[in-house]
Lab assay of single mutants.
Amino acid sequence: IRCIGVSNRDFVEGMSGGTWVDVVLEHGGCVTVMAQDKPTVDIELVTTTVSNMAEVRSYCYEASISDMASDSRCPTQGEAYLDKQSDTQYVCKRTLVDRGWGNGCGLFGKGSLVTCAKFTCSKKMTGKSIQPENLEYRIMLSVHGSQHSGMIVNDTGYETDENRAKVEVTPNSPRAEATLGGFGSLGLDCEPRTGLDFSDLYYLTMNNKHWLVHKEWFHDIPLPWHAGADTGTPHWNNKEALVEFKDAHAKRQTVVVLGSQEGAVHTALAGALEAEMDGAKGKLFSGHLKCRLKMDKLRLKGVSYSLCTAAFTFTKVPAETLHGTVTVEVQYAGTDGPCKIPVQMAVDMQTLTPVGRLITANPVITESTENSKMMLELDPPFGDSYIVIGVGDKKITHHWHRSGSTIGKAFEATVRGAKRMAVLGDTAWDFGSVGGVFNSLGKGIHQIFGAAFKSLFGGMSWFSQILIGTLLVWLGLNTKNGSISLTCLALGGVMIFLSTAVSA
């Protein structure tokens, strides 16, 4: 259960009878995928790494000078000259100064003066180019299975845990398959586009800190620079940016070097996208990844198990997540596992009318040892309800109150669905055939309105939902006002479609 501690969480529900669903994975976010007769899966884009970055340009932001020398000439005696002028490691300046009897010249006039100092770069920052084909995306998957609280967001041991898996995709191999043991396998067909235009970005490294910066900004930095990788004795261009020549006297000129420019660069980098280094690879934390999940090989585990009949206890007080759902960790005293956990939410304890829904599909106890633990997640209705676990006299209950409203949740879900469709863009549509167009249209309606429909009408039977949709269509056909007619027709059509397409 990876997503319960992530604030940016998206719930995606598969269409009834569908074998695939489109998701948008982004750094700092987590996606929970639910479908009829399929286990619930949490998917998170953990890291995006980039390798084989080529150094484009380096800037010196802290330097020192040494070996200063000057040469001067009297008027009419030609130009002052130093051998160091031809050495690229030196920074030199030529000027004219007033000369006369007082400073060793027989004539009054302008004399030539040249001053040089050896330039040494102490600290530099480097910009590297990123090729999209060198990106690698690491995705962690977790099935809502027989897990306890100690396994949440624990990325170790996934090789031997059938509840978890790690997959890596690249532009050259965008397809992967996550093996989930008894739950089958989940196929991923990803489109490795981060949403960032790397043709316009460089990877900047300064003092063990890293950013993504725009090329134009990078090339306009007014500091000494050299092109390409460091060859040991780089040729620094624009050395004068960190060196200041003071007022010249008759035979000498003082040279000083400016202080470190790291603070000024940090100020200019305010708002830039931060990154990290992992050995020789860069780690990015921006952008998104679009994936199509193929769920035809994914299956529920323990459908044929019998119900657990022994007593359950709450190991922890049920807690609310950031998303309005409830996490419950229970301990089973029996030894008759594997068995299914009898769990439901009810409005009252007399009729036990089921409300809400299970995020953890078909929760089971897989071990036959005593005191096995299991964590599950529920989506309670707004208002008061009861969490009921167990059967008969051994069942345990917990009162729950959820604040908020169904309308607010439906609106929030619609906005999130619209954002998801905007990110998917043209990849969500198939114009290759008439059937493809209608299929894409259905998927689009489901992406945007599916979660809201589930919130508003999830407790009704599909037949009642179709009746309401048919009534809206009838009202649309018999209303003389054009805008009201079109609105009723659209709402009725969407409702009829979703009542037959969205899983219960």
Results as ranks from 00 to 15, higher is better:
residue 117 A to H: 04
residue 399 H to T: 02
residue 179 T to M: 05
residue 50 V to H: 02
residue 235 H to T: 07
residue 418 A to N: 10
residue 150 G to Y: 00
residue 185 S to H: 08
residue 18 G to L: 00
residue 445 I to W: 11
residue 271 G to Q: 12
residue 17 G to V: 08
residue 248 A to F: 09
residue 145 G to F: 07
residue 309 T to A: 11
residue 498 L to H: 13
residue 33 V to Q: 04
residue 114 V to S: 10
residue 490 A to V: 14
residue 402 R to P: 09
residue 470 T to V: 15
residue 191 E to V: 06
residue 324 G to H: 11
residue 198 F to Q: 05
residue 478 N to M: 13
residue 296 D to M: 10
residue 435 G to L: 00
residue 437 V to R: 00
residue 285 F to E: 04
residue 63 A to K: 10
residue 308 C to Q: 08
residue 80 A to W: 11
residue 151 M to A: 11
residue 383 G to H: 09
residue 38 K to S: 01
residue 368 S to A: 15
residue 410 A to I: 11
residue 298 L to M: 13
residue 364 V to Q: 03
residue 210 H to V: 14
residue 232 G to F: 08
residue 20 W to G: 05
residue 265 V to Q: 13
residue 303 V to A: 14
residue 5 G to D: 08
residue 395 K to A: 06
residue 444 G to E: 12
residue 432 G to M: 11
residue 343 V to H: 02
residue 497 F to A: 02
residue 42 D to I: 05
residue 108 F to D: 05
residue 33 V to T: 04
residue 354 P to R: 15
residue 131 Q to M: 10
residue 183 F to W: 10
residue 141 L to Y: 06
residue 432 G to N: 14
residue 109 G to P: 02
residue 29 G to T: 15
residue 333 A to Y: 11
residue 133 E to S: 03
residue 308 C to K: 07
residue 215 K to F: 02
residue 276 E to K: 09
residue 350 Q to Y: 14
residue 428 A to H: 04
residue 20 W to K: 04
residue 92 C to F: 09
residue 460 M to V: 13
residue 130 I to G: 04
residue 229 A to I: 13
residue 240 E to H: 14
residue 268 A to V: 08
residue 493 G to N: 02
residue 349 M to Y: 01
residue 123 K to E: 08
residue 240 E to C: 01
residue 106 G to V: 14
residue 156 T to P: 14
residue 435 G to D: 00
residue 319 A to E: 02
residue 305 Y to I: 02
residue 311 A to P: 10
residue 107 L to E: 06
residue 93 K to I: 09
residue 233 T to R: 08
residue 445 I to D: 11
residue 123 K to W: 10
residue 308 C to G: 06
residue 132 P to Q: 14
residue 283 K to F: 15
residue 110 K to W: 11
residue 488 C to W: 11
residue 417 G to S: 10
residue 11 F to A: 03
residue 349 M to Q: 03
residue 461 S to P: 13
residue 179 T to L: 04
residue 446 H to G: 02
residue 480 K to P: 01
residue 308 C to N: 08
residue 72 S to R: 01
residue 418 A to D: 13
residue 177 E to D: 12
residue 209 K to M: 08
residue 76 T to R: 02
residue 385 S to Y: 06
residue 37 D to P: 00
residue 17 G to N: 04
residue 197 D to V: 07
residue 502 V to C: 05
residue 462 W to A: 07
residue 453 F to L: 09
residue 414 T to K: 03
residue 207 N to S: 14
residue 343 V to G: 00
residue 313 T to S: 14
residue 94 R to E: 14
residue 73 R to G: 05
residue 95 T to H: 08
residue 35 A to I: 03
residue 430 D to K: 06
residue 209 K to V: 06
residue 195 G to R: 00
residue 239 K to N: 10
residue 106 G to D: 01
residue 329 E to I: 11
residue 481 N to P: 10
residue 2 R to W: 13
residue 442 G to I: 11
residue 337 G to M: 13
residue 344 Q to D: 05
residue 216 E to F: 07
residue 327 T to S: 14
residue 209 K to A: 04
residue 162 E to Y: 02
residue 78 G to N: 04
residue 155 D to S: 13
residue 231 T to S: 15
residue 1 I to R: 00
residue 56 V to A: 12
residue 130 I to E: 07
residue 491 L to M: 13
residue 76 T to I: 07
residue 79 E to T: 11
residue 360 T to L: 01
residue 85 Q to Y: 04
residue 415 V to S: 03
residue 126 T to E: 12
residue 209 K to I: 04
residue 475 L to T: 09
residue 502 V to F: 10
residue 418 A to Q: 08
residue 498 L to V: 01
residue 267 T to R: 15
residue 183 F to C: 12
residue 235 H to W: 06
residue 386 Y to P: 00
residue 493 G to A: 15
residue 420 R to I: 05
residue 321 T to G: 07
residue 231 T to L: 15
residue 484 I to Y: 08
residue 459 G to R: 15
residue 197 D to H: 09
residue 280 A to V: 13
residue 105 C to P: 04
residue 94 R to G: 12
residue 34 M to H: 12
residue 463 F to L: 15
residue 4 I to M: 14
residue 356 G to W: 07
residue 345 M to R: 00
residue 419 K to E: 11
residue 169 V to Y: 07
residue 286 S to H: 08
residue 332 Y to S: 02
residue 8 N to H: 03
residue 53 M to R: 02
residue 385 S to H: 12
residue 476 G to A: 14
residue 346 A to F: 12
residue 23 V to N: 04
residue 193 R to C: 03
residue 257 V to I: 15
residue 30 C to Y: 12
residue 89 Q to K: 05
residue 275 A to W: 03
residue 423 V to H: 06
residue 58 S to R: 00
residue 5 G to H: 04
residue 447 Q to R: 00
residue 500 T to M: 11
residue 256 V to Y: 00
residue 107 L to W: 10
residue 135 L to W: 06
residue 487 T to F: 05
residue 405 S to P: 04
residue 429 W to A: 02
residue 11 F to N: 07
residue 46 V to H: 04
residue 476 G to R: 00
residue 370 E to T: 04
residue 108 F to R: 01
residue 133 E to R: 01
residue 48 T to W: 10
residue 84 K to W: 07
residue 170 T to A: 13
residue 253 Q to P: 01
residue 98 D to R: 03
residue 400 W to I: 10
residue 314 F to N: 03
residue 396 I to A: 15
residue 123 K to I: 00
residue 279 G to Y: 09
residue 165 A to W: 13
residue 184 G to E: 13
residue 497 F to W: 12
residue 275 A to H: 03
residue 207 N to Q: 02
residue 253 Q to A: 07
residue 271 G to R: 12
residue 499 S to T: 14
residue 266 H to T: 13
residue 22 D to I: 03
residue 486 L to C: 14
residue 125 M to E: 05
residue 493 G to P: 09
residue 271 G to S: 09
residue 324 G to P: 10
residue 445 I to N: 11
residue 301 K to C: 03
residue 232 G to E: 12
residue 446 H to E: 04
residue 62 E to G: 08
residue 1 I to E: 04
residue 417 G to K: 09
residue 310 A to E: 08
residue 97 V to Q: 08
residue 73 R to V: 07
residue 476 G to P: 03
residue 499 S to D: 11
residue 26 E to R: 03
residue 486 L to N: 03
residue 12 V to T: 01
residue 138 R to P: 00
residue 252 R to M: 05
residue 197 D to G: 13
residue 213 V to Q: 07
residue 204 L to D: 09
residue 106 G to A: 15
residue 167 V to W: 12
residue 216 E to V: 12
residue 158 Y to E: 01
residue 255 V to A: 05
residue 9 R to P: 01
residue 54 A to R: 01
residue 213 V to N: 10
residue 483 S to F: 13
residue 384 D to R: 02
residue 40 T to P: 01
residue 353 T to G: 14
residue 117 A to C: 02
residue 334 G to K: 08
residue 26 E to H: 03
residue 285 F to S: 14
residue 180 L to W: 11
residue 108 F to V: 06
residue 395 K to M: 14
residue 312 F to H: 05
residue 431 F to R: 03
residue 54 A to Q: 09
